[in-house]
């Protein structure tokens, strides 16, 4: 996959847990253009092992001088976000993929309702730049834990004016999805990004109210969970590989020098899908891509986030 070599031009501590990184090309050239809602995958070399995490681009798509990403520190994770927080400073050099958009605003929508929870605000920041430029009708509903955790609220107020609605949990302000979604004009689309429970509840509520699937948009990147080690057997290349507990199948294949395809590395896009030929245990699906029926059928798996509790998993690759 073609990559861009970037340098960190600035680091800003936005809240206690969120850092904002400004990235420029090492060769001084402008960066490729992108559309609101796009993400890039950042490669990090942590103790000799290559980690790659997806982050949404939150700058204005008009700005090709620099890209902007924000990282929330997740202590309970495999270390990507902690590395970004502790090791990456002004001048650090990183490799990123070209931007990919899995969360674009709909061209058919007449009104856009954006619903963000916590760090899930980031993809909306580039979407809002697009919506403003296109003069589209939108509202942003942003929920966060407490006033100190409200990342980018000032900037958002400037961008959105009274279209911004904040919900501060510590002050007992809660969003009612039911209320938010009722009496919306035909042609309204809803977009959501944030914690799993929030995204799921919002989508369920919308479906329950008769909203068609085509008007619902969500983006969730899962991090690959830690689990037990197992072996994958790659049927086409005849290779057996050990997947350690703290590595995903995708990472294990990359570590072995293979280049399986991916776009999001967060179980959202489906690009990495592999066919399961045999498994002597249970598949543990962690993606948001396969339907429940496909997960139960058990003949497909997303190696970027899913794993198996088994001795050996045979994949058609």
């Amino acid at each position: 996959m073609t990559t861009l070599n970037v340098r960190v031009a600035a680091v800003e501590q936005v809240t206690e847990l969120v850092k904002h990184f400004t990235l420029v090309q090492q060769n001084g050239q402008p960066l490729p253009r992108f559309s609101g809602g796009s993400h890039v995958v950042v490669s990090m070399n942590i103790n000799g092992r290559n980690h790659r995490n997806p982050y949404s681009l939150m700058g204005s798509p008009d700005n090709t001088e620099s890209y902007h990403i924000s990282v929330r520190r997740q202590e309970q994770s495999r270390g990507g976000s902690v590395y970004m927080h502790d090791q990456v400073t002004v001048g650090s050099e990183l490799q990123i993929t070209y931007p990919v958009n899995l969360f674009a605003i709909s061209k058919l929508a007449h009104k856009h309702i954006l619903v963000a929870g916590g760090i899930g605000i980031t993809p909306f920041m580039s979407q809002i730049a697009d919506l403003n430029r296109l003069g589209q009708h939108y509202e942003l509903h942003y929920a966060y834990r407490s006033p100190e955790h409200g990342a980018f609220v000032e900037q958002l107020r400037e961008m959105c004016g009274d279209r911004l609605h904040c919900y501060v949990e510590s002050e007992g302000q809660r969003m009612s999805f039911q209320q938010l979604l009722s009496q919306q004009p035909l042609g309204t689309h809803v977009y959501t990004c944030g914690p799993d429970a929030m995204v799921k509840t919002l989508l369920l509520t919308a479906r329950d109210m008769g909203w068609p699937e085509s008007h619902l948009h969500s983006e969730q990147f899962s991090a690959p969970p830690i689990g037990d080690a197992f072996v994958i057997s790659l049927a086409q290349s005849g290779i057996d590989l050990e997947v350690p507990g703290d590595m995903s199948m995708l990472e294990a294949m990359e570590e072995a020098g293979l280049e399986p395809p991916f776009l999001c590395r967060g179980g959202a896009c489906g690009r990495c899908e592999l066919e399961v030929l045999a498994c002597d245990g249970a598949l543990m699906h962690n993606d948001h891509y396969l339907s429940d029926a496909e997960k139960t059928a058990g003949n497909k798996i997303m190696p970027c986030v899913s794993r198996a509790s088994c001795q050996k998993l045979v994949l058609n690759i």
């Binding site: 979604l181 009722s182 919306q184 004009p185 035909l186 309204t188 109210m209 008769g210 909203w211 008007h215």
Partner: peptide, 10 residues
């Protein structure tokens, strides 16, 4: 009349 209808209409 379409203006009287909202999201959720079948």
């Amino acid at each position: 009349q379409l203006g009287n209808y909202h999201m959720g209409t079948q």
